[in-house]
């Protein structure tokens, strides 16, 4: 088996002559084509959904852009793992990444566009959509990551499992459910609805819900007046730490007039799981969360 120390493709020569062509794969990513050879062992991930994918395929990354929040990583993978923080997702530390001697880096196509060339000098780098990804794109990214990790078959298995989990959850949704649903992120000074084209909006639709806000823009800031006009039947609120604008809205009679408030259909959604992780496992967690909260299942 190969141990690639993260240099050029000439490293292939270390392997046996026969497996050379088999071990090197061309990965199509947002930047074009990248050749990855062997089975990467030292992987650095710069987005949380990539951590979800890599961990799902049985690999613990050596480096994670964890925004210096170990707790968040623990929440994502479900247990404490041993890794090195490479800084924030928005400004990962290239020196730390380089010192980890990775053999594969997975970066976000939007956030890390400007450092792509530098990352490429450190190790083979694939750029995929995470931050702006739809649910389908996340599935595609998972397939691509599985290929890059030389675990294509395992990836297919995991995806089949995932589809089954989602289908089982879907079957639990009452057939006559006709209420609409939406998730909003509450910040200190603003309230942002995630529309039908957002990642979590797609999860709601996948489960069979009608989405309350149909739009091609994934995110939409709204005032209390607009929220009361939309007046969703079920409202999930993903609140940032500390006091948010919703605490202020709760004192307004218009808030008490919302259908979701009157019928007790306002639920908390974990900010990390629902809107930051965006991986396959976290979409399952989110979907289970809906069924548990809305139907006590």
């Amino acid at each position: 088996c190969l141990i690639v120390s993260g240099c050029s493709s000439s490293q292939n020569n270390n392997g046996s002559g026969k497996s050379e062509s088999k071990d090197s794969r061309v990965i199509h990513d947002e930047e074009g084509k990248t050749t990855v050879s062997g089975t990467p062992k030292r992987v650095v991930v710069l987005e949380l959904s990539f951590l979800d994918a890599v961990h799902n395929l049985g690999i613990t990354p050596v480096g994670i852009a964890d925004d210096n929040k170990k707790d968040m990583i623990k929440k994502l993978v479900g247990s404490s793992i041993d890794y090195t923080s490479v800084g924030t997702r928005s400004e990962p530390n290239l020196e730390v990444i380089s010192s980890l001697k990775p053999d594969l880096i997975i970066a976000d196509a939007e956030r890390h566009k400007n450092i792509y060339k530098q990352l490429k000098k450190i190790a083979p780098t694939i750029e995929l959509k995470s931050r702006e990804a739809t649910y389908d794109e996340t599935i595609d990214s998972f397939t691509t990551i599985a290929k890059a990790l030389n675990k294509e078959d395992e990836g297919k298995e995991k995806l089949a499992e995932h589809k089954k989990v989602i289908n089982d959850l879907k079957a639990e949704l009452p057939k006559d459910e006709n209420r609409n649903i939406v998730l909003g992120v509450a910040r200190a000074d603003s309230f942002q609805l995630h529309t039908s084209s957002s990642y979590d909006g797609e999860i709601f639709k996948m489960l069979g819900f009608t989405h309350a806000v149909k739009s091609d823009n994934a995110y939409q800031e709204v005032s209390l007046e607009q929220l009361s006009k939309i007046d969703p039947d079920i409202l999930f609120i993903s609140a940032n730490e500390g006091k948010t604008i919703v605490d202020e809205w709760k004192t307004n009679p218009l808030w008490k007039n919302l259908k979701a408030v009157k019928n007790g259909q306002v639920y908390d959604a974990d900010r990390d799981t629902w809107t930051r992780f965006r991986g396959i496992k976290s979409s399952e967690t989110s979907a289970k969360d809906v069924l548990k909260k809305v139907y006590n299942k």
């Binding site: 924030t88 400004e91 910040r187 000074d189 603003s190 209390l224």
Partner: peptide, 24 residues
């Protein structure tokens, strides 16, 4: 703002907004 994600919370306020105004 660059070093901390929750700093992004105030980006809306920083452009100057009065749509969320209340009696307080």
């Amino acid at each position: 703002i660059i070093l901390n994600e929750s700093g992004e919370d105030v980006l809306y306020w920083m452009t100057g907004a009065i749509d969320g105004s209340n009696w307080q």
